[in-house]
Amino acid sequence: MFHCEVVDVKTNQITIEKAQKFIESQKCGASLYFLGTVRDHNNDKTVTGITYDAHDSMVKKSFKEIYEDAIQKLKLDHPAAFVEHAKGYVPLGGISVIIAVACKHRAQVYEFSRFIIEEIKKKTPIWKKEHYQGEETAWLEGKQIQVKN
């Protein structure tokens, strides 16, 4: 069971309640909620917010592939995952990403959640522009996508 979305924060918001409603199941004995949030410093600079950019259709495709990859590699029992990532300006403390997962047993949800976030960092076309005190901004240096030849 899987849900993913790129959430335009101008018109919508990421909430734990939506995720909880999606993943709850009597077949699962464990649920885990991971939230990525905007912190107040990076590289010795005071951060006031982050603008997230995303290639929406590729992001959703990537999330689905990561989910399917996790199912195959981790051999999960009754897996459910709810993944949403913000697009647009997220202020300090705001939620940038939610990964809510559920499985039959607790060990699997830790692995499942960690797998998803680490793969997102490596494969999903999302970019961050940090906003600092005093109007300065900077796009963060990211990870180069490897092209399969």
Partner: peptide, 20 residues
Amino acid sequence: DEFMLNNNQTVSIIPPIGGG
């Protein structure tokens, strides 16, 4: 890099990524 393109095709430039 060797992918051939057609007239009026749309492509996206994907700079190094870093979400989460």
